[in-house]
């Protein structure tokens, strides 16, 4: 029986949602190739994590009680050893910041290809076909490879695995070369705090790269004032230092679910969409009809924000 090995993600005592989605993706791929689904959970309170990962379709959960938090050296060495022992055809990890910090090294050491940020997967036993986006989500591509591979999956693309499985839970004792551990985590810091919590807002006026210049933000503040709404933004605005980090919507910022989300000059990169697609009503104002934001918007105005925004503000004055 061949194997699919999925490596769970957790941080500061909590399994991350994508870990359960990983089980669904891993089970489907295991079915494609007639394999068992093995799940590894490395470092931290693994005995607490293991029963949570024992959901429908999981054959074995391997617990690796080594260290507390993510250490990419420990993850790399352990995953390589476990994949080798299981003769895993596919190693699956989340396409998270930590996933991208060790999955490429695992592929390099196993001498197999890596395909990242996948949104759909199928295999005929030898050939893997993976769907992923290119050009900032403008197109979807299918890439193929044959033989074993390391694959990272995008969050929120597969449903979370449910139910309670009857997996074997067993400890795996890796042989860690401690001299080779050259990166040490010394702490964590929350950086998106401050006076405003955009995740509490009912109405968000959110601004992106299309605003062009810092001075133009005044248009956005004027609109937000007129609507009694809160200003948020996509990443480039915060990167430029025009708004503080606590205003950033998206994967590395806040996840928001307002009643109304007005995306102004925001193209809708996947990292941004991850933070706002749960909004009840999404309105996009954008000149680009092919911008990914248009795919998730309920209402759209395909026009210049510098014309539409002042006109909208005027409607409420």
């Amino acid at each position: 029986m061949s194997a699919v090995l999925a490596v769970a993600d957790h941080r500061r005592g909590e399994l991350r949602d994508v870990s359960y989605e990983l089980l669904t993706a891993g089970r489907a791929l295991a079915d494609d190739v007639g394999a068992d689904l093995h799940v590894a959970v490395i470092s931290g309170t693994v005995d607490d994590f293991a029963p949570k990962l024992d959901r429908d379709g999981v054959d074995t959960v391997h617990t690796v009680d080594y260290g507390e938090e993510f250490d990419h050296g420990v993850y790399t060495q352990t995953t390589v050893q476990l994949a080798t022992e299981l003769e895993a055809q596919y190693v699956l990890t989340p396409n998270s910041v930590n996933g991208l910090d060790y999955a490429p090294a695992v592929a390099s050491r196993l001498d197999v290809p890596i395909v990242t940020d996948t949104v759909a997967l199928e295999s005929d036993g030898d050939e893997l076909r993976a769907t992923r986006e290119m050009y900032g989500g403008k197109v979807e591509t299918t890439v193929s490879l044959s033989g074993p591979a390391v694959v990272t999956i995008r969050g929120a693309e597969w449903p979370a695995a449910e139910g309670t499985g009857d997996a074997t839970i067993e400890a795996f004792d890796p042989d860690i070369d401690e001299d080779a551990l050259g990166a040490t985590v010394t702490g964590f810091e929350e950086v998106a705090g401050g006076d405003v919590d955009i995740s509490d807002a009912d109405v968000l006026v959110s601004v992106g790269r299309g605003i062009d210049e810092e001075e133009n933000l005044e248009l956005i503040h004027d609109l937000a004032d007129a609507l009694d709404a809160t200003v948020s933004s996509s990443r480039p605005i915060v990167d430029s230092g025009w708004l503080p980090k606590n205003r950033q919507v998206g994967q590395s910022g806040k996840v928001v679910t307002p009643d109304v989300y007005i995306a102004i000059g925001i193209s809708g990169a996947v990292q941004h969409v991850a933070g706002m697609k749960g909004s009840e009503t999404i309105v996009a104002i954008n000149t680009d009809p092919n911008a990914p934001i248009m795919d998730i918007a309920d209402y759209a105005i395909q026009d210049d924000l510098f014309d539409v925004v002042p006109a909208l503000t005027e409607q409420f004055q």
Binding site: V115, R129, V139, V143, M294, A297
Partner: peptide, 17 residues
């Protein structure tokens, strides 16, 4: 890796423009 297919993604919502 071989690039096999490329397509425009399907829209997830029926957007009112």
């Amino acid at each position: 890796l071989t690039l096999e297919e490329m397509a425009e993604p399907e829209s997830e919502t029926d957007v009112t423009v």
